[in-house]
Design a protein around this nucleic acid. Structure first.
Length: 891
DNA sequence: ACGGTCACG
DNA sequence: ACGTACGTGACCGTA
């Protein structure tokens, strides 16, 4: 770029690809990758190249999660939705395509595309060149000048509106420089720039025509009147900040120069290869590239692979066996269902250097597969994979052991960000700027449409996954190390995944006859209640349909409507309890609901899950779901077996030891979350209470109500208990008022009183919120992190939710850390001591074991000891233990 | 596929 | 003024 005849085109990559994504209907290529946004972008690009004939051109991208704008303005982009995976997987595609066009890309960590564009357009202007900026964002209009024209996309991407400074004036009556004042006043919902509430484009323009700048509007605010003046006066800082945030930074310290953006056209061969891969056939024709030969023309639609796929069924086992003995990079095990206790294996891929071996499932049990099976079961042979915990269960059902876990990409991704929207292999690749692969759904289909594709496609897909895992591994490990999360990963989550698989394979014995009998009793009562309800109503209807039930209660019987849902009347238990005094039918419906739930979910649901051969139920713990670090349990969920009401609690009688004469032993932490709170808040009163092992709700009541503990009545204790729950959840007066059925004022008074007594807790709640705002995340004692992007949102709801989460997650998450440690220590202890007792279940603050009679005494001491010493806090941890002939009796 | 409801910690 | 307690999974009825 050197003289006045040069023409520079600057493209706002993020803005255009976003526009294109929403403007072009969904589109996928043969390997299942979405391509619509890339297509839209390319269409726009071709048009610009043709019309502008640039001498220099580049595409600028945003880089990094946090930009320098966050330093000055917390809410920036806070309310923006996460990029959908269908779009984020297209970034790498675009970034691969641009070199084929001979177009360079600029990005710099911490800066956004518009700052890069602002900087380069300034440089080009100074050199006397002319500039065309292409974006979907009107903010860019601030850059328009005699030398700079701004093209803003409208309706799709290839149609643009052209802005010189004169056009800006004609359309808005403003100079380009005033565009930032416009944003300062009206804000921008998509960037979460607040502006001044109640001021939209019209009002903002009127004000600027009158006063010229935000500063002048603020200065002369007294000349305004009514609601407008009030709004502006109350949001002066917001207006100033919004203007500042909307101002494009034009001094980005770029390393590359405009010379790096010189454009001399594309190479046909390269471009046709890239477009074929994307399957943009019409573009190939349009560019008259049909005859052009791409380097890998032989395999149209595929890019050259950095590895060779070896089909073991054709090539034989020799080579794979050699590789197993030498060096394996990664392992993929594919199966056909969500439930690893039921899914059937499909095939397996082993990546070793330039070869990736594919083994169809049928071959796994053949004699020839001996070395592979031995390798899978060999503890000292390191396995890296994706969700190996699941793989272990699938392989186990084929009688094959999986041992020697070295790295799990899914688990690492969870440790790095437990709320990651798309932790699939493709999602992780995209997020790391690597070329993505087809999602499983695209290869297999989903739900009822699940089909195993032909061998070639299957082998290719598994190989792509195996290759992806070994490429992701160093990146994920480095990230964990950088953020000091590797200990949580290597010392807790990874070893725990092995312990969990052991518990799941073990399973718990469930007495099907006992469930049947209980179910028969529920059935009798349900039938009675149903006929009673029909009799009262005068006709039959489906009680299980909230819609029909609502019609009966509110239209026919005319009961008062307490609450509504999106779709109609609310009929939940809270509503029904309020309606109970009005009509006798309500109590019957509540009873029906209770029994119907027990029958369908717990009697019928659990019966279906009992394996006839063993009489056992095998749940599956998901270790990478809960945002706080807790486990979840599926197929069936054994973490929500009824206990609160006696009828439901009976279900627990069916959970029994798997061997005659053994016992069920259960141990649960007492008040672990409040103890954790006492520790991390350092609150003296709370610590003292736990050191003296006091009844914490009575103690809270006595302090809050200012009476001695023996004067605390049941009602006071109940209120205090609700306050303690609220504290753990991230308290709000509204939430507490709902829970206690009191007014918001009364609830607020409770909370204030609580905080005046427990000042350490109060300080903690403030500190943690501040910390979350500053860092964008909160952490547990073991450095488990949870990001809270909404903590800086200007939207009250989003922000409040994030604040409560900031208060709750360190507490719930630390409690989860602690029981995970206890599980690891228990697993060790059982093995070291050669005990026969088995750990079977975890229910967040409880561990369930089956224990032979002769170990009962030992285990009754050992389990609580291990649980209580899992992590040393400033207050003692306490675990209560009990045992019985079934889970019901172990209470 | 999704919302309403309800089981647990 | 805003409208909610924190974290899950399963079942049912309905679109």
């Amino acid at each position: 770029m050197g003289n006045g005849t040069d023409k520079l085109v600057l493209i706002d990559g993020n803005s255009i690809i976003n526009r294109a994504f929403y403007a072009i209907p969904p589109l996928t290529n043969g390997s299942g990758l979405h391509t619509n946004a890339v297509l839209g972008f390319t269409t726009m690009l071709l048009k610009v190249l043709e019309e502008e004939k640039p001498s220099h051109i580049l595409v600028a991208f945003d880089a990094g999660k946090v930009t320098f704008r966050h330093e000055g303005f917390a809410e920036y982009k806070g309310g923006r939705q996460k990029t959908p995976p269908e779009l984020s997987e297209q970034f790498p595609l675009l970034k691969e395509l641009l070199p084929a066009f001979g177009i360079s890309q600029f990005e710099l960590a911490g800066y956004e595309a518009d700052d890069i564009i602002g900087t380069l357009s300034r440089v080009a202007e100074e050199k006397g060149g002319s500039v065309v900026i292409v974006s979907g964002d009107k903010d860019m209009l601030q850059l328009a000048s005699d030398q700079v024209t701004v093209l803003i996309t409208r309706k799709g991407v290839s149609e643009v509106e052209r802005f010189t400074p004169e056009d800006v004036n004609e359309k808005y009556g403003l100079t380009p420089a005033q565009i930032i004042d416009l944003k300062g006043l009206m804000g921008d919902a998509s960037d979460n720039i607040p502006g001044v509430p109640g001021v939209g484009e019209k009002t903002a323009l009127k004000l600027l025509h009158e006063y010229g700048t935000v500063e002048n509007v603020l200065e002369k605010v007294t000349e305004l009147k009514g609601k407008l003046r009030e709004n502006i006066e109350n949001n002066m800082d917001s207006a100033r900040m919004s203007k500042q945030v909307a101002t494009i930074f034009r001094e980005v310290p770029l390393e590359k120069t405009l010379d790096d953006a010189a454009y001399s056209g594309y190479q046909s061969a390269e471009l046709v290869g890239a477009l074929r891969k994307l399957e943009f056939k019409s573009l190939i024709e349009r560019l008259d590239l049909v005859g052009a030969v791409s380097e890998d023309a032989g395999a149209a639609g595929s890019e050259p692979l950095a590895y060779e796929i070896v089909l073991v069924e054709e090539a034989g086992w020799g080579e794979l066996n050699d590789a197993l003995a030498a060096n394996v990079d990664s392992l993929i095990v594919e199966s056909n269902g969500d439930n690893p206790h039921q899914a059937e294996g499909i095939g397996l891929a082993v990546a070793a250097g330039e070869k990736i071996y594919f083994v169809p499932w049928e071959l796994l049990t053949a004699a020839d597969a001996g070395p592979l099976r031995a390798w899978l079961g060999e503890l000292s042979a390191a396995k890296s994979g994706y969700d190996l915990h699941r793989d272990e269960l699938v392989l186990a059902r084929a009688g094959i052991e999986l041992r020697g876990l070295a790295f799990d990409a899914l688990l690492a991704a969870y440790v790095l960000d437990p709320t990651e929207a798309d932790p699939s292999i493709g999602g992780l690749l995209s997020r790391h700027g690597l070329a993505s692969i087809a999602p499983d759904e695209a290869v297999f289909g989903k739900g009822a449409k699940f089909r195993v594709p032909d061998r070639e496609r299957l082998a290719k897909h598994l190989a792509a996954k195996a290759d992806a895992v070994r490429r992701l591994k160093p990146l994920l490990v480095e990230e964990m190390e950088k953020q000091s999360m590797h200990r949580l990963y290597y010392e807790v989550e990874q070893p725990l995944s092995v312990v969990l698989a052991g518990m799941e394979k073990q399973g718990i014995s469930v007495n099907g006859e006992a469930l049947q009998e209980l179910g028969a009793e529920f059935q009798r009562r349900i039938e009675e209640i149903v006929s009673a309800i029909y009799k009262i109503a005068g006709f039959e209807f489906n009680i299980g349909s909230p819609k029909q039930l609502g019609e009966v209660l509110f239209d026919k019987l005319g009961l008062p409507v307490v609450k509504k849902t999106k779709t109609g009347y609310s009929t939940d238990a809270e509503v029904l309890e309020k309606l109970e005094p009005y009509h006798e039918i309500v109590r019957q419906i509540l009873l029906y609901r209770q029994l119907a739930k027990l029958q369908s979910t717990y009697i019928e649901g659990l019966l279906k899950e009992i394996r006839p051969e063993t009489g056992k139920i095998h749940t599956f713990y998901r270790q990478t779901i809960a945002a706080t670090g807790r486990l979840s349990s599926q197929f069936p969920n054994l973490q929500n077996i009824p206990i609160r009401l006696e009828e439901g609690r009976q279900i627990r009688k069916a959970f029994v030891p798997s061997e005659p004469g053994w016992r069920i032993l259960a141990a649960d932490y007492s008040q672990i979350e409040l103890r954790v709170l006492a520790h991390i808040s350092g609150d003296e009163g709370l610590k003292e209470a736990f050191r003296n092992d006091m009844d914490i709700h009575t103690k809270t009541a006595s302090d809050v109500f200012g009476v001695s503990p023996d004067q605390v009545d049941a009602n006071m204790r109940r209120s205090a208990k609700a306050v303690n729950f609220g504290i753990v959840y991230g308290i709000s007066d509204f939430g507490l008022s709902q829970n206690l059925n009191i007014t918001r004022k009364e609830a607020a008074a409770f909370i204030e009183q609580y905080f005046s007594v427990f000042q350490g807790v109060s300080r903690f709640m403030e500190t943690i919120k501040q910390q979350a705002k500053q860092d964008g995340y909160v952490s547990t004692l073991l450095d488990r992190r949870r990001y809270l992007p909404d903590i800086r949102a200007s939207n009250f709801n989003l922000r409040s939710f994030a604040e409560r989460t900031a208060m709750n997650s360190p507490i719930q998450g630390t409690a989860a850390d602690i029981i995970k440690l206890a599980m690891l220590r228990m697993d060790e202890a059982l093995r070291e001591r050669g005990l026969r007792s088995r750990m079977l279940l975890q229910v967040h603050d409880e561990l369930v074991f089956e224990v032979p009679e002769e170990e009962l005494e030992l285990m009754s001491k050992l389990v609580p000891e291990v649980m209580e010493s899992a992590l040393k806090l400033d207050v003692p941890l306490k675990a209560d233990v009990s045992h019985g002939s079934n889970w019901y009796e172990a209470k």
